[in-house]
Structure formats: structure tokens, C-alpha cells
């Protein structure tokens, strides 16, 4: 640490989607329990680089600041992290902040993760209820099923699993672990299971589950500890059964 009273932050910036990236460095006064969001707010209040140059505040996405909205994911010291839970005292300095590399940059650290929401549409990630009018209670469910499904339902669509996946890149539009795990969640639900086949079929389209190459980075990077590799394995089984055995036994 250069100075116990300072936090040095290097930010990879880009003025627009087509802009050329450049780096800026900031020196901020250290306080206890600082996180990366607090650093970015400090910069917004006094946007002056370490060299004394006036600059613009840094664009970044954030909302809940408690790791449930999925907004503030970025690369922190080269790793996919949520900025709100990245505590300064636990990071090596200078702290390097970069936008996710697998999504188009909007500006600075803000990226466009619409791909994930489009993918959720592709795999029909919902329970197709008849309507919101009163149709009585939902299906009963074993506590065991709920306990298995609940962790999957906590996915915040932050995109970390796509960011760290070697199979997601410019040459390959892999749908990613988060979406596959959502399919597992919906196929697990008694009503959702009635429509399992169409979700599985969507998962077998180009860029689908077959593009997973089992590097298992996703499960390590997931900030919500979702058992993504289990989900992928489970969906793999459902998929090949449908693709290879489905036409035999219906």
C-alpha cells in the first residue's frame, strides 16, 4: 500500500461503445469499511485524477448495494466481482476497475447485459399460468424440492458466470450457466415441468448447453453460490435424454 491513508484506484474508461479505452488513476482518502462503490462516489464528488487533472465522474451501474440486484458487477483487480461487496481493505492496491469484457461497454464501467434477458426469453424462463384470477392454491411441493430449487431462484443475472466462462467470447455466443440453471429451476416446478420439453429444446439450439466445456469457472465466480455445475449436469442429462431417447420412447 503506497500510503496507509490513501486508496489508489485505476479505472479503465471509455466514453462510448465505440470509444478507445484509456486508464485514469485516482487517490482517495481511506476510511474504514470502504468498498468499491464508495470509491466511485468519492470520485464523483471530486473528479480529479491523481495527477490533478479534472475529469468526469465514472459511469457505472449500481442499485441495491447489497448484492441482490446484480447491477454493479465489474472486473476488480481482473476478477469478476460485485462492486458493492468488494471491500477495499481486502483488495490489493492499486485497485484496478474494468468493465466486463464479454458484454458491450456502454460507458466506462457500465455494460449492456441485455443478452441475458433475451436468453431468458429464449428458454421460456417462466411458469405459464392461465391468468392472475383466482384459481386456488399452487401445487404442493416437498420441502426437499423447495430446498433444492430455492438456491437456483436466487440468480441475480449479474453476468459473472458468462464473464469468466472461456466458452463465452466473440466467436461463440454461449448462453451461459445462469440461464441453464434457470431452466433447471423451472423444469423442477410441478407446473413448470409440464413445459420442460420446450425449454430443453431451446437449450439445444446453437449456443446452447452443448457449448459448455466444463471449465467450471462459473460456479467459482457466482456471487450467490448457486450450484451452477450441478444445474448444467442435470440439464445435460435432461437434454440428451430428450434428443437421443425422446424419439424412441416419446
Amino acid at each position: 500500500m503506497p500510503d496507509a491513508k490513501e486508496v489508489i484506484v485505476r479505472v479503465k474508461r471509455q466514453v462510448s461503445p465505440k470509444g478507445t479505452p484509456y486508464w485514469e488513476e485516482f487517490a482517495l482518502p481511506w476510511r474504514p469499511a470502504m468498498n468499491v462503490i464508495i470509491c466511485l462516489r468519492d470520485i464523483a464528488e471530486n473528479p480529479v485524477t491523481r495527477e490533478g487533472q479534472r475529469t468526469t465522474p465514472i459511469s457505472y451501474d449500481s442499485n441495491c448495494l447489497e448484492e441482490v440486484c446484480g447491477s454493479c458487477a465489474m472486473l476488480i483487480n481482473g476478477k469478476a466481482r460485485m462492486a458493492c461487496s468488494a471491500l477495499v481493505d481486502k483488495l490489493d492496491q492499486p485497485i484496478r476497475l474494468e468493465p466486463f469484457s464479454k458484454f458491450p461497454v456502454v460507458r466506462d464501467l457500465a455494460v449492456d447485459r441485455q443478452f441475458m434477458f433475451e436468453s431468458l426469453k429464449r428458454v421460456k424462463s417462466w411458469i405459464p399460468i392461465d391468468g392472475t384470477y383466482d384459481l386456488g392454491e399452487g401445487p404442493r411441493m416437498a420441502p426437499e424440492t423447495q430446498e433444492k430449487a430455492y438456491p437456483l431462484s436466487r440468480c441475480i443475472s449479474c453476468g459473472s458466470c458468462l464473464e469468466v466462462c472461456p466458452q463465452v467470447n466473440d466467436n461463440n455466443k454461449f448462453i451461459g450457466a445462469a440461464i441453464i440453471s434457470q431452466v433447471r429451476l423451472f423444469n423442477m416446478h410441478p407446473t413448470g415441468a409440464m413445459h420442460a420439453k420446450e425449454r430443453i429444446a431451446a437449450l439445444m439450439e446453437p449456443g446452447g448447453i452443448q457449448d459448455c466445456a466444463n471449465a467450471q469457472n462459473c460456479v467459482k465466480a457466482c456471487p450467490k453460490d448457486i450450484p451452477l455445475t450441478e444445474s448444467i449436469a442435470e440439464m445435460n442429462r435432461q437434454a440428451w435424454k430428450q434428443a437421443l431417447v425422446g424419439w424412441l420412447v416419446g
Binding site: 466458452q167 466445456a213 467450471q216
Partner: peptide, 14 residues
Amino acid sequence: RGKSNISAYPWVGN
């Protein structure tokens, strides 16, 4: 079609 990233994520699986 893959793009290795072990320098950033030096995990066993990777």
C-alpha cells in the same frame, strides 16, 4: 471457439 483465461482465473477446472 473457446478463449482460455487461466491467467485471470487460475482455478483447477480452468
